[in-house]
Design a protein around this nucleic acid. Structure first.
Lengths: 207, 207
DNA sequence: TTTTGAATCTAATCTAGATTCATTAATCGG
DNA sequence: CCGATTAATGAATCTAGATTAGATTCAAAA
C-alpha cells in the first residue's frame, strides 16, 4: 500500500504516518508521566507540535487514541519479553528463563518504551470499555508468566510453599510498580535488575 | 468543643460526625474500586445516601475530600503496620519482623480498610497538590520499611547482593499492586500472605 | 498557473461534572 | 409549640476539556 508508486506520493504518506506516530508517542509519554486522569488532549497535541483539533484528523477520539497506546504498549511489552526468551538456548534452566523475563520486562518498561510504561501505570485506571479491549492482549502476557512458573515448578525449581498464582501476581506487581519510583538519575537500571532477579530467584527457588 | 455540654447537643454532634464519616467512607470505597479518574462526586454522594451538594456542607471541595481520604488511608496503613510490629516480642528476629509487616500491610490493604486500598491504588495518579500534602505521611511509611531492612541487614539477615532501596521498593510494589488483582472470592487472603512472606523471606534472606 | 486534496488551524459548540445559592426540612433548647 | 440553628435539597451556574465546523495553507498534479 505505501510502496505503490515509484517515489512520488510516498513522502507525503510517510509524513502523515510520521505525524500520526508523533501523536501516538506523545500520548504514550504523557500517559506514562502524568497518568490517565491528568492526561489532557492539549498536552498530547502540544508535545506533538499541533493544536488539539488536529489530533482528530488521525484519531476518532481521545479514547481511541489512548486505547491504541495501551494496545501497542501491551504488545511491545509482551513481544520484548518473548523475544528475550526465545533468544535463550533451549536448555536454559527454567529459573534462568524467569530471570531473563524479569530483566526484559524492566528494561522495556523503564528504559525502552513509554508505551509499556503507560500500560503498567494506567491499566488499573482505565474506563471499562478500554479495559475490555485490552483484556485479550493483557491475558496473553499473564499466560506467558504463568507458563514460566508452571514449567519452573514442574522442574522442581520452585518451592512447594509457593502458591503459583499469588507468586506470579506479586512478582508482576513488583515489576509493574517500578515506574512509580524508579528514576534514571538515582541508581542504575542494572542495579535494580540485579536485585529484582535475586529477589525472584531466591524468593521462588528451591533449597 | 464537642464535650462541652453534659449530654445534650452531643447526639446531634455525633450524628453530624456520622454523616461526615459516611461521606468519607463512601469516597474511600469509590476511590478504591474505581480509581481516581473515575470517581465522581455523584457516586460518593449516592453511596452516602445524599445529593451531591450535601457533601459541601462537610467538605470544602472534592479535592479536599479526596485528600483527606488519602491522608487517613496513609495513616491507617502505617499505624496498623506499626502496631503489628510493636506487638512483637523485643527479641523477634529482624526477618520475622519484616514478615509481620508484610502480613499487616496485606491485611489492612485487602481486608480492613478501603482507605488503605485507596492510597495504594491511587497515590500515583493524584494531582500534584494532593500528592505534595501526602508526601510527609507517605515518607514516614517508607522510613518504617527502610528501617526494617536496614536492621535486617545489620543483623546479617539480608544477602549482600541485594540493594536495599531497590528491594524495599520492589517489595512495596508487590504489596501495593495486590488490590489490582486480589479478590476475596478466588483464593484465601492467608494464602496470599503466606506466599508473600515466603517470597520476601527467601528473596532477601541470607543462606 | 490553476486545481485539488491532504493537513492543519481558529473559533465556536457541547457536555459532564463540580460548585453555588436560595430555599426547604429536620432538630433542638427553651 | 416556637424560633434558631443545623442538614440537606433542587434548580441554577460555571468551567475545563473534548469535539465539531468551517476556514486556510501548501505541496503536488494537471
Amino acid at each position: 500500500m505505501e510502496t505503490t508508486s515509484r517515489n512520488s506520493a510516498e513522502a507525503p504518506a510517510l509524513k502523515a504516518a510520521a505525524t500520526r506516530d508523533r501523536i501516538l508517542a506523545a500520548a504514550a509519554r504523557t500517559l506514562s508521566l502524568k497518568g490517565y486522569s491528568a492526561t489532557r488532549l492539549a498536552d498530547i497535541a502540544e508535545q506533538a507540535g499541533l493544536r488539539p483539533p488536529a489530533v482528530y484528523y488521525y484519531f476518532p477520539s481521545r479514547e481511541e487514541l489512548i486505547a491504541e497506546v495501551m494496545t501497542v504498549g501491551q504488545l511491545r511489552l509482551r513481544e520484548h519479553v518473548e523475544s528475550a526468551l526465545t533468544a535463550l538456548p533451549d536448555d536454559t534452566p527454567p529459573m534462568d528463563r524467569i530471570c531473563a523475563a524479569v530483566e526484559a520486562h524492566l528494561r522495556v518498561e523503564l528504559d525502552l518504551s513509554d508505551f509499556a510504561t503507560a500500560v503498567s501505570r494506567n491499566s488499573g485506571q482505565l474506563p471499562e470499555d478500554i479495559r475490555d479491549r485490552l483484556r485479550a492482549d493483557s491475558s496473553a502476557y499473564f499466560d506467558l508468566w504463568r507458563d514460566l512458573l508452571v514449567k519452573a515448578r514442574a522442574a522442581g525449581a520452585v518451592r512447594d510453599d509457593i502458591d503459583l498464582r499469588a507468586a506470579r501476581m506479586l512478582v508482576m506487581g513488583a515489576l509493574n510498580w517500578t515506574p512509580e519510583w524508579w528514576n534514571p538519575r538515582q541508581g542504575s537500571l542494572t542495579g535494580v535488575i540485579r536485585t529484582a532477579q535475586s529477589l525472584v530467584r531466591h524468593g521462588l527457588g528451591a533449597l
